[in-house]
């Protein structure tokens, strides 16, 4: 069974985001990058499934982006993926979901994948479109937001997370695309021997043109900080001083400290 897992490299969101010159996305300088949180669960599920299936199951990890994404592919391989595919694309961050999906589908088409796993969304873009679009382009079955997953080689059974913590249990015929929600499993930490082994695994490098990049369907502009509510008071300073000011604020603006509630 051939499994493809699609991983994106994203910035650490604690970083400070400054618009690029065109105002279409952020300037990358000074930001740290790592594997998209949701995709870690997809990698774990793919590798875990291969271990459960045994035999000739194999897992390919694919990532699209500039050279820095090789680090994320190496991490996926250190977690157990058998090989990596790097679609080297310096403009990946500016591509719309349709373009990203066109490249993934372009690579996957006619390569015999029976299962494609990916995160339900990325933490930076958050469109939640790419996985579903890949399925549509390939004519695969698809479901999203998996918090439970099993696969017998011809069907997959997925628990979908719904509003309010309810779940829908869904069965899909393979080939299929499943997008993974946080908490699906416990992603493993790569061990040192596996990190070393990953450096020797096969890494295929392709260009966007090799995998059928299509024209964009949407254009972005006006990247900026989300304004804080006008009424939000921001306090900075030493811990003791802050604590005193916060207690004063709570006394003035709430009733919770007035009824002898505080102990």
């Amino acid at each position: 069974m051939k499994i493809l897992v699609c991983v994106k490299q994203v910035p650490d969101l604690e970083g400070r985001f400054v618009p690029n010159a065109a105002g279409t996305w952020f300037d990358e300088s000074g930001l740290a990058f790592r594997m998209n949180d949701y995709d870690e669960f997809a990698v774990e599920e793919a590798v875990g499934l291969r271990e459960r299936l045994g035999g000739d199951a194999e897992v390919t990890a694919l990532s699209i982006g500039p050279d820095r994404v090789v680090e994320t592919l190496r991490k996926a391989m250190a977690m157990g993926c058998d090989r990596g595919v790097h679609v080297r694309d310096g403009a990946a961050a500016e591509r719309d979901p349709w373009q990203v999906a066109s490249m993934i589908a372009g690579y996957a088409r006619s390569r015999g994948f029976e299962l494609i796993l990916t995160g339900m969304q990325s933490i930076d873009r958050g469109s939640a479109q790419v996985g579903v679009l890949v399925a549509e382009l390939l004519g695969f079955a698809c479901t999203t937001t998996a918090v439970g997953f099993s696969c017998d080689g011809s069907t997959a059974t997925v628990e979908r997370e719904l509003e309010g913590g309810a779940k829908g249990v869904v069965r899909l015929k393979l080939p299929a695309v499943v997008t993974c929600q946080l908490g699906l499993n416990t992603p493993r930490y790569p061990t040192l021997p596996n990190i070393l082994k990953a450096k020797k695994k096969e890494l295929l490098v392709l260009a966007p043109g090799d995998v059928g990049l299509e024209a964009p369907l949407a254009a972005a502009s006006g990247f900026c900080r989300h304004e804080r509510s006008a009424s939000c008071l921001v306090l900075e300073g030493g811990a003791d001083d802050l604590a005193g000011r916060v207690v004063a604020e709570l006394r003035e603006k709430t009733a919770v400290l007035r009824r002898g509630g505080a102990r």
Partner: peptide
């Protein structure tokens, strides 16, 4: 985008 920290306009 960026987990709600930033926003942008998509046309």
């Amino acid at each position: 985008c960026c987990n709600g920290k930033m926003r942008r306009t998509v046309r």
